[in-house]
Amino acid sequence: MPVLMPEPEGTQLGRATTYAEAYSPELLQPIARSLGRDAIGDHDFQGTDVWRLYEFSWLNARGLPQAAQVELHVPASTPSIIESKSLKLYAMSFAMTRLAGGAAEAESILTRDLSAAAGGPVKAAVHPLGTWKTLVEPMPGDLLEAMCPDVEVEDFEVNPELLRRTEGGPRTAAVCWSTNVFRSLCPVTGQPDFASISLHLAGEPVDPASLLKYLASYRRHRGFHEQCVEQIFHDLRTRFDLKVLEVQASFTRRGGIDINPFRSTVSAEPHRVPRELRQ
């Protein structure tokens, strides 16, 4: 049966946009994580959502515009995510705001406001573009679609029954696999969301072709990025005896923001957050 995430009410998604002329923290809109987790039937998740904002600017004390990249770490333990368009509108409200304290002051304000909206401690880092360094790289892991080029896909709404154990193989295995063909849909607008996903699995062996078919079955699924990753994590955890399970997704940018959820049985924070080739 498809897992349906209810459409959140009252969001800014799909609405005409008016940008604020002054700093406006009231624009931030929390959405309860329970909305997606109730649909999955699982609330036990460890990990972090890493948000990266590539369009962030303010004025210095003399009115000269400043430009920076922002990275946010939102623990999966927070009761709420922040609706992405509301985050964009909030970030844009800094554009005509004078901050005499520069990046450090912006970082302090972001940490305070986003922690309040998420209901728990959010880490914010503001990197002025003159000093920001980043590495663009593919997601780690052997590419499933290269390993299984002849797989036939017929299910395009989430179907965990596709998942299979490797037959005739080892009793346990440790693998790192990835895919670049993941797509889901926004639960409000129906717009497509594309991502690359990396999976680290150790324990009962999962058949790679069945995993690829399962991941492809999200193509018509309507869910926020975090809910999709938690659904993948839940389905693998409940169907296989895994000592290590990590699911990390790098979604392509929308509105100057990319979202990178990470869920794990062994760590609350990802070892690293790749800036994937399409980001």
Rank of each mutant, 00 (worst) to 15 (best):
252 T>H: 06
255 G>V: 03
247 V>L: 04
248 Q>R: 09
269 E>H: 12
269 E>K: 15
260 N>A: 04
259 I>S: 09
249 A>W: 02
276 E>R: 06
253 R>G: 10
275 R>V: 14
243 K>D: 14
276 E>S: 14
268 A>H: 10
245 L>E: 00
243 K>T: 01
267 S>D: 15
262 F>T: 03
244 V>P: 07
256 G>I: 10
244 V>G: 00
250 S>T: 00
247 V>Q: 08
247 V>T: 08
245 L>M: 00
252 T>I: 11
264 S>P: 03
267 S>C: 11
266 V>M: 08
261 P>W: 07
249 A>R: 09
250 S>R: 13
244 V>M: 12
276 E>M: 06
256 G>E: 14
260 N>W: 01
269 E>V: 12
259 I>W: 02
259 I>G: 06
247 V>F: 04
259 I>E: 13
259 I>C: 11
266 V>C: 11
251 F>V: 08
254 R>Y: 00
247 V>Y: 00
276 E>G: 13
260 N>D: 09
249 A>S: 14
253 R>M: 07
273 V>C: 13
255 G>Q: 10
262 F>R: 07
272 R>C: 13
278 R>L: 04
265 T>K: 14
243 K>V: 02
266 V>Q: 10
262 F>Y: 15
274 P>Q: 06
265 T>I: 01
254 R>E: 13
270 P>H: 06
276 E>V: 06
264 S>I: 01
256 G>R: 00
242 L>W: 10
260 N>V: 00
253 R>F: 03
262 F>S: 00
262 F>C: 05
244 V>T: 15
254 R>D: 11
262 F>W: 07
269 E>A: 14
258 D>V: 00
265 T>L: 12
266 V>A: 09
272 R>G: 08
249 A>L: 02
250 S>W: 05
271 H>T: 13
254 R>K: 14
269 E>S: 12
261 P>N: 13
277 L>D: 02
260 N>R: 12
271 H>I: 11
249 A>M: 03
268 A>D: 09
271 H>W: 05
251 F>P: 07
267 S>W: 03
272 R>L: 06
277 L>I: 12
251 F>S: 13
245 L>R: 03
261 P>E: 04
275 R>H: 15
270 P>I: 04
278 R>G: 01
255 G>T: 07
262 F>V: 06
249 A>I: 03
274 P>S: 10
258 D>T: 09
264 S>L: 08
242 L>P: 02
253 R>I: 02
266 V>L: 04
242 L>C: 05
277 L>E: 08
259 I>F: 05
264 S>Y: 01
269 E>W: 11
270 P>L: 09
247 V>P: 08
251 F>R: 06
253 R>K: 08
257 I>G: 04
255 G>N: 09
253 R>Q: 05
254 R>A: 10
246 E>A: 12
262 F>L: 09
248 Q>V: 01
277 L>K: 12
267 S>I: 09
262 F>G: 08
256 G>H: 07
252 T>L: 14
277 L>N: 12
255 G>I: 06
273 V>I: 15
266 V>S: 13
268 A>S: 14
266 V>N: 02
263 R>S: 12
272 R>P: 00
260 N>P: 05
251 F>Y: 15
278 R>D: 00
249 A>E: 08
269 E>M: 14
275 R>N: 13
268 A>Q: 12
273 V>L: 11
277 L>H: 02
248 Q>D: 01
270 P>R: 05
